[in-house]
Amino acid sequence: MPKQRWVEISVGGFMLLGILALVFMALKVSGLTMNADRNSFQVEAYFGDIGGLKPRSKVTLAGVTVGRVAAIELDEEWFEARVVLEMNSSLQGKLSKDTAAAIQTAGLLGDNYISLTPGIEDEMLGPGDTLRDTQSALILEQLINQFITNSSRD
């Protein structure tokens, strides 16, 4: 029956379109990469205040995205934020151990992200290492507060 055949073919096409849409949403829209786990390595950093940093925030080096924030949790011994960074594996063994991490804001009102600045030591950063040199988020309200108290003291 040719009609039944047309029905089957078009339903097949419909399913294919649905799968295509799912793949598009996964790869192109949400930027999922199939082998994200294999092509990255993790380092840790401790911050006094992370501001509005969230998991999946960007990690940049010289403005170029080189990784993402994988997890954020509270270190209950020192009461600092422990942030796990997921870095592109191409950088493994190329960044020095004293690389600095700072939480910055994109524009005045934009998202927080972590900006890395390479250091000068010979020893290189590997998986599981901890970044020592960190700078907490600048919080606008605190800055304004400080500015007001300083200027009133003058």
Partner: peptide, 19 residues
């Protein structure tokens, strides 16, 4: 356009939840 989209949309929390 694409890179901002990719950094903001999570596969699991957005696409899968939508489905």
């Amino acid at each position: 356009f694409w890179s901002n989209m990719q950094s903001a949309v999570g596969f699991q929390q957005d696409v899968i939840n939508g489905v």
